[in-house]
Design a protein around this nucleic acid. Structure first.
Lengths: 202, 202
DNA sequence: GTCTATACAAGGATAGAC
DNA sequence: GTCTATCCTTGTATAGAC
């Protein structure tokens, strides 16, 4: 319900005002929803007024658009790298692992979580759509070498598992490191059934 | 972008005005988002005015709240039945299959898709929260007999696979029946790794 | 049961002083 | 870079006639 600034998963607050605004805004958008969060609310939490925000960003959209833009290049690099991986089981595992690594070492979680929580709002933000496309591309790379429709589904679920393993409410006591590893294990199981000899198809 | 009234996945338009309003509203909420869809827009599509809607429902919330309420009892029955299933692999498969069956033969898809697309809005609707709880309960039943955290994750993903397999944009030509069967296959793979002797844990 | 008209609140965005 | 004050639009919801 609250922002939980002590949440270890929250990114460290950066110094420059633009980034501070973006992080606070994205957090609120993720918790309460993009349209349910007003600029007044964001400004309040930062201890400033609405007008101050408009000095840094031209619109509400631009706050998130701009943030996602940076993540796009993160993902671009990952996709380019994934394209070089061999089209076999080890290659697919490498791609999933690479995604998980980036996921946990960049600003991606905040962005991906925003996308998941605000799927409809994302429809109206061009940058958000581009990011969804990129994730679909990545899934496509995972499904290479297997033309069956099951490959697509498993690839998409594998990527979702990384997100979900990290983001789902934890009922069991487990460290973040364990959660990450666990999500990866399950993602492996899924992509391991992709291939020219699809074991999962009966 | 449009409502696609010819979409075979869309439920048949019922005759009574209350249900007609609800179906149209839920469709729009799912496509555009709950808060981005105004009552004027819903009324327009139905060929009436805003005030007419208020004759049938006391508020915007009530339109969806009321619809989800009916789905709650559908799920309640399913959960009660699932609780009777044996705690083993065939039992878990039966639960997943039962969920898939209900999913495709009741008003659940519209409700679940609304939930997925409007996760943040759902936070503010008590009925939506109850429904999320129910889905979590069902996942919990799937994870019975396996205390490892992986069981939870796999159970959640299995249920998500049913939804995702049906709802994801289809790039390959495949019949709805095939999609349903495929999603079930993948869901089976996931729940098959749940158990007192967890094969998926290394 | 549906309409017209309207009250009322809230949000995004801008102007202009400091 | 931040403030106060304000404009304008849109949305939910209601009143009351037909």
């Amino acid at each position: 319900m609250s922002i939980r600034p002590d949440d270890p998963r929250a990114p460290a607050q950066p110094a420059d005002p633009r980034s501070r605004i973006q992080v606070v805004a994205l957090q609120l958008f993720t918790e309460q929803g993009y349209e349910r969060t007003s600029l007044r609310e964001i400004a309040e939490r930062l201890g400033v007024t609405k007008a101050a925000l408009y000095h840094h960003f031209r619109s509400k959209d631009e706050i998130v658009d701009n943030y996602l833009d940076d993540r796009l290049s993160d993902l671009d690099k990952l996709i380019a790298w994934a394209r070089q991986q061999p089209v076999d089981t080890p290659g697919r595992r490498a791609i999933v692992a690479g995604y998980a690594d980036r996921f946990f070492t960049t600003g991606l979680p905040l962005a991906v979580r925003f996308l998941e929580q605000n799927q409809t709002a994302a429809t109206h933000l061009t940058t958000a759509q581009r990011m969804r496309d990129q994730l679909a591309q990545l899934a496509g790379l995972l499904a290479r070498g297997d033309e069956s429709p099951g490959a697509e589904l498993r690839a998409g679920l594998a990527l979702f598992a990384i997100y979900h393993g990290w983001s789902a409410p934890q009922t069991s006591r487990i460290t973040d490191e364990e959660r990450k590893r666990l999500a990866l294990v399950v993602a492996y199981e899924l992509v391991d059934r992709i291939g020219p000899d699809p074991a999962g198809e009966d």
